[in-house]
Structures are given as C-alpha cells and as structure tokens.
C-alpha cells in the first residue's frame, strides 16, 4: 500500500547502503543491497541513474524527456517509477 507522494520539487538520492551499477553480463542496471538485489528494466534504470541527490524530480523528468524525444506519457511513467522506488526504500528524500 503506497502512501508516499512524490512532488516535482523533491530531490532523491540512492538509499544508504544501496549500490546501483550497470551489469554487462545481464545487460541491465541492478540495485544491490544487503540481503538482496533487483534487476531494473530499461526505464527504471534511467530514472534511478539520474536520482543522484542533486536533481529535483522535475529535472529528472526533463532530462528523460530530452533523452527520449517523442515517447508519450514520460512524465507520468517517471513519477510512477519514483513512487515505486520510494515505497521500496531504494531512494531516499534528500531535501
């Protein structure tokens, strides 16, 4: 049950003790943490990669829109990804 609400002005960074890296063998981004790991599909990886504690959610949306021109509904996809990542404790709010 999600009661997290992500705002465009929020700044998120990777949660403490998490590691995010590109895996050549799997051809995907992964999140690694004590007791587990998650493989991220393309879109999720692009979001987490940019959530580096320096940009607001709105800036991440802009960057992704710029990187993938012409893809519809990016804003809502990115917001949904942030919500999921916060709910799962992958990302932490920094502001």
């Amino acid at each position: 049950m999600s009661n997290t609400s992500v705002n465009p002005a929020d700044i998120y960074g990777l949660a403490r003790h998490y590691r995010f890296q590109w895996e050549e063998a799997q051809q995907c981004y992964v999140l690694l943490y004590p007791e587990g790991m998650v493989k991220l599909n393309g879109g999720a990886g692009e979001v987490i990669k940019r959530a580096d504690g320096s940009k607001t959610v709105a800036e991440v949306v802009q960057q992704i829109e710029a990187a993938f021109p012409g893809v519809p509904d990016l804003q809502s996809d990115v917001m949904a990804m942030f919500e999921l990542a916060v709910e799962k404790s992958w990302l932490e709010k920094r502001n």
Binding site: A25, Q26, E35, G36, M37, V38, K39
Partner: peptide, 12 residues
C-alpha cells in the same frame, strides 16, 4: 536469499 526476487537465468 530472503527478499531476493527469483530470476530464471538458466545461463548465469
């Protein structure tokens, strides 16, 4: 292995 999603890799 708790909290780990099950991935079927067969090769890796």
């Amino acid at each position: 292995n708790n909290g780990v999603a099950a991935f079927q890799t067969h090769t890796q």
